[in-house]
Structure formats: C-alpha cells, structure tokens
Design a protein around this nucleic acid. Structure first.
Lengths: 173, 173
DNA sequence: TCAATATCATTCGAATTCTAACGATCGCGC
DNA sequence: GCGCGATCGTTAGAATTCGAATGATATTGA
C-alpha cells in the first residue's frame, strides 16, 4: 500500500509526520494536504477501476464515455460546450469526436447560421450503447461507495462542490 | 458552467432529474453517482489548477511532481514501489525517470545484490526543488479548500479513504 | 464597403501514458 | 551445476492529450 496517500488512519498520520519532518518549520496546511491528496488518489484509482471493469469491454476511453454520457442525457450541443462538460480542450475534443464519429456513435453537423460552429450529437447507436453502459457504470459507483451512508455521500458531494466553486471562482467558469 | 457535474445544488438536482428521465425505470444509485462524479470533476479541475499555478513554471509534469515528492519525503526506493506510489505503471515510470534523470533531479542505481532491481533516489537538486515547490503546492491546496471547516476536511478525507479501501479490496493492493 | 479583429474547429508536433513483448536476472527443484 | 518459471526494468508502438499555429467565418469600425 502506498504511503504517500495512505488511507489507513495511522498511515495517514505517519505520512503527515514524515512530511512535517521534511518540511521543517515551514507552515503547512495538513488538513488541506490530506483532503486534496485523497481526492487525487481516489479519482485515479476509481477511474482505473471503471476503465477496466466497464469501459474496456467496449473499447471506450474515459473521455469518450464522458462525452457520450453528456450527449445521451442532454442531447446535441456545440463543441465548445461539450469540451467544457468533458473537461478537455477543444483540440482534444476534435480528435475524440473523429474517433467516436468513425465508430458511428456521434455525428457532427455545421451550424446553419454560423459557419464557424459545429454541432455534435449522439447517434441512435450511441444512445443505445449508453443506455446499456451507464447502469453498469453506476453499479460500480455504488459498489465503490457501498461502505458510506447516504448522509456521508451527500456530505462528500457537498464538500466537493464547495471546492469546485472555489476553483471556478479562481480559474473562471 | 457544465451541467453534467454541476456543483450548484439546484443544478445537481436538475442533473439527477435529467438522468432519471433518460434512464427510465432502471434502478440507479443517485447518491453514488453524485458523489463519484464530483470526485472526478474536482480531481480534474484541481489538477489542472495545480499544473498551471505551480508546476508549469518548473516545466514539471503531474507525475514528475508526485514522484519527486515521494522521493523527497521518503527517500530512495525501488522502481516498483515508486510506480505504485505515483499511480502509474512501471513502463511509464521508466520513461518518467529517464526525463527526471536527464534534468538532474533523480538518479538510478542498480541493486548490488539483485541485478534485476533498480533503486531510484532524489538528487540534492531534486530535493531543493521540492523544498521550494511543495509549500507553493500546499498553499494552493489550502486555497482550494478554504471554504471548508477543519471538520469538513477531515470528514472529506475519511470518506475518501473509505472508498479507497473498497477499491483496493476489489482490485488488489 | 471593406479592412481589421475576433472566434471557431481543426491540424500539427511534442509529451505522457498504456499494453505487450523483450532480454536480463534470480530462485527453486533436480 | 542447470534448466525453468517468475520477476524485474526497459523498449516499441499505439492512443490520448495539450499548446501553438492555421484556415475559415463572423463581427466591428472607419
């Protein structure tokens, strides 16, 4: 088990002591360090778990799944907006869409009024795939959070939303 | 603001309703969905924030920073262990170490007793860099969690550790 | 009207990561 | 001693991502 982002309480405390010993007298916010490092660690481990248990069978990348999910729930939108939803740059979305379009899961169509814009939408095949895939994905989400009470899950989500608000107030929407 | 992983309570509720409308009568665990999607979203946004505000100046990748931090705090170790700490494969660590070694931040030395093993350690330059960089990194962690109370941060970390335990019990250590 | 500026999607090259395959090395059984 | 399977770090090739540059289109201002 990694020590750097240990999840056992004793190991976490030991990690804090180790860092404290290394940093010296510099002022460090340890509760922020422990909270954020666990966010990163869980996200990495959970994403890898999802990719292997759900996405690998369908040869779908993480971003590909996210884009398809967004299009499945909210329908067609412009590439600019989809890129923000997925959390990648427009350049990355451009190549991602090329991949998804080649597999018949998405379509691109130019905006009738503004020739610069491109609208992206899901195909029937794409929507069918997500209707089959999302319940499997969600079942794994439920599995990973099975030891948390409903109250803990809501508290977790609430704290994370607060962090997200702070980030967006700093880096912009 | 993205709708898919909205952090405003009303938007989050609306997202849940939208998904509910799309999924139909299939049973979905919404508290798990909201909790996990916020983990992913915060991790992505926070990582990008850190890369731009702290790591970009030093031309350091996320994994490069993580590896250097681990070596700074716990000292030299074998590549196998370091790869697990950083959360990348041994193959990825191999090329990462080549980069860090070329910049004079790490050293590789073969194990005297076991010719297969390679021990990785930080250089003085690497340790100096981390001593300068980590306080800046931590200051940003504190900034991003500034709206959370100490109790909330500990609760957040505790819930995340519980998820981590579950993942490791499924996917192995 | 039309040139200058802005915005958009895309392309290009570099960096990072992964899986699979490889060669080297170790430990075990005979 | 000596194969044989296991383990290690590395390499090769593919996929994904990004920043910067590009070309097309729209908008603004003189």
């Amino acid at each position: 088990m990694p020590r750097a982002f240990a999840h056992d309480r004793d190991d976490a405390r030991q990690a804090e002591l180790d860092v404290r010993a290394r940093v010296g007298e510099l002022p460090i916010d340890y509760s922020a360090m422990v909270a954020m490092s666990n966010v990163f660690r869980v996200a990495t481990a959970a994403r890898k778990h999802m990719e292997k248990s759900v996405l690998a069978d369908e040869q779908l990348s993480w971003s590909g799944f996210t884009a398809l999910f967004v299009l499945w729930v909210w329908g067609a939108m412009e590439t600019n907006q989809l890129a923000e939803e997925v959390g990648i740059t427009r350049a990355s979305l451009s190549s991602l869409m090329a991949t998804l379009e080649r597999r018949g899961l998405c379509t691109r169509s130019s905006h009738p009024a503004d020739g610069r814009l491109v609208t992206v939408g899901p195909t029937a095949k794409g929507n069918r795939l997500m209707k089959e895939l999302f319940p499997k994905f969600n079942a794994q989400e439920a599995l990973l959070t099975q030891t948390l009470t409903a109250t803990s899950r809501h508290s977790l989500a609430s704290s994370l939303r607060a962090i997200l608000r702070t980030i967006e107030s700093i880096d912009g929407p």
